[in-house]
Design a binder for these strands. Structure first.
Ligand SMILES: NC(=O)c1ccc[n+]([C@@H]2O[C@H](COP(=O)([O-])OP(=O)(O)OC[C@H]3O[C@@H](n4cnc5c(N)ncnc54)[C@H](O)[C@@H]3O)[C@@H](O)[C@H]2O)c1
Ligand SMILES: NC(=O)c1ccc[n+]([C@@H]2O[C@H](COP(=O)([O-])OP(=O)(O)OC[C@H]3O[C@@H](n4cnc5c(N)ncnc54)[C@H](O)[C@@H]3O)[C@@H](O)[C@H]2O)c1
Lengths: 205, 205
DNA sequence: GACCAATCGTGATATATTTCACATATTCAG
DNA sequence: CTGAATATGTGAAATATATCACGATTGGTC
């Protein structure tokens, strides 16, 4: 069965926690109770999540840390290389371009695009900025499935339409708008205002 | 009763949708069914959410768009000005600094800090970068409640401890780590890897 | 080798969230 | 003014998610 979003999120938390923990002090195994304690989750939940991705622990011992990390990475698809294009090399797009953390999740930005003639042709963080006009041919030629969208919000839907028309399968949307796409295309929104709303609401109390 | 996170998230979606819709075509009222249709939510859910923030509609007409937007903004606390400090003026911190979109949510970055001597004293996007040593006195003096954390992940917890010790009430955490803070301090994580996991999982299918 | 303590795996239970169903209220047409 | 149509508001039902309770399994101890 397809994993739910909440499960994926918890799996990532387990993975991050175990990566951090083992980095400082190498340990072989860990119990669901230990993870639960650290992450403020019910231990049963941890075991059910692990069960959902086929992990089996051993009584009185717990789980092999190595196994857990591998299983999460495999299930998530981080071992698979995902080439992606980035569109809109401005403040945010530029920051994402330099981010070295994507690598370990299998994401590699293979081409970047902008509409600004002052930017196209120039280089940024090792990438030559291409004209937005070459977007569709590039995606078709290299069979790209993922696009990272960092353009001004006004053009987001237009670009999304183009991406869809050329067969993109997922859009990582950093622009504050709800994109309309066919059901088989995944849009993952990083709407920064959501975080802000939670913070503002908390500070108001 | 305190609103749940899922409700806050939907309220933001309503707000964004109505802002966008009225921007292009001014309308007075809207029905729960119209909103539900556009956002792919159950209409009952929309009405319950509106009820939760004290909105009443009128039969056969719907809700006053103006009222909805106001109510959301008020409930969220966007009308209240929230001064904030930003820590770590690197790629990401720099991008956030230039972002004009925070204003309409009441967030204003009043001071920025960095530990790099090559950066402190210099100016970025209209802010003079202060030494991290002046962080605590500044927060105390100006009674700052919110900090935006964009430092390397290794120092996140150290900085967070300092922030807590000087009475911060919320941390907007852009670094990929789970911070340990007292229960009365809100940490809002913008863990980019969560988005990536959802995308990678989808592309694997 | 037998027992004890700790841990997993999981069905049953509890809680949270969403959806349904319908009474009530309002608009508009004739 | 009356009736038909279309909204809202909300308790009840359904679904989803999280927690509890406990048998099964394993490792350590004597
Ligand atoms: N800067 C931030 O911290 C931040 C935070 C959250 C969300 N965002 C969102 O991210 C998006 C980008 O923000 P930014 O601050 O980087 O803006 P920016 O203006 O610095 O960058 C936008 C880039 O997109 C390019 N562009 C414009 N039209 C284009 C087109 N049709 N095709 C291709 N490229 C095009 C521009 O030339 C520019 O380089 C915005 O939607 C913004 O709301 C930004
Ligand atoms: N760049 C991205 O697109 C991106 C995306 C997601 C998450 N992040 C996270 O955001 C954080 C910052 O990323 P970045 O790309 O901007 O890195 P960066 O190296 O460009 O910036 C980090 C800044 O923090 C400053 N700093 C270091 N130690 C400090 C301290 N003790 N006190 C104050 N300032 C200190 C550095 O001088 C530097 O200016 C990292 O944790 C990164 O994982 C970055």
């Amino acid at each position: 069965m397809r994993l739910k979003r909440v499960v994926l999120e918890r799996l990532m938390r387990y993975h991050r926690f175990l990566s951090q923990t083992t980095a400082s002090k190498p340990i072989q195994t860990i119990t669901s109770a230990q993870i639960a304690e650290a992450l403020d989750i019910d231990p049963t939940q941890v075991r059910k999540d692990f069960g959902a991705i086929g992990l089996v622990g051993i009584g009185r011992v717990g789980y092999q840390v190595e196994d857990v990390c591998c299983a999460v990475r495999t299930v998530m698809g981080f071992d698979k290389e995902n080439p992606a294009v980035l569109i809109g090399v401005g403040q945010l797009g530029g920051a994402l371009l330099t981010y070295p953390g994507f690598e370990k999740y299998g994401l590699s930005i293979t081409a970047v695009f902008d509409s600004d003639p002052a930017k196209t042709g120039r280089s940024k963080a090792g990438h030559t900025i291409r004209s937005i006009r070459s977007l569709k041919p590039y995606i078709r030629k290299h069979d790209i499935m993922l696009a990272i969208l960092c353009t001004p919000v006004e053009v987001s839907q237009t670009i999304a339409d183009r991406l869809v028309s050329v067969g993109i399968k997922a859009i990582w949307n950093f622009t504050p708008t709800d994109l309309a796409v066919p059901p088989d295309v995944l849009v993952r929104d990083e709407h920064i205002s959501l975080g802000l709303s939670e913070i503002a609401y908390h500070l108001k109390q």
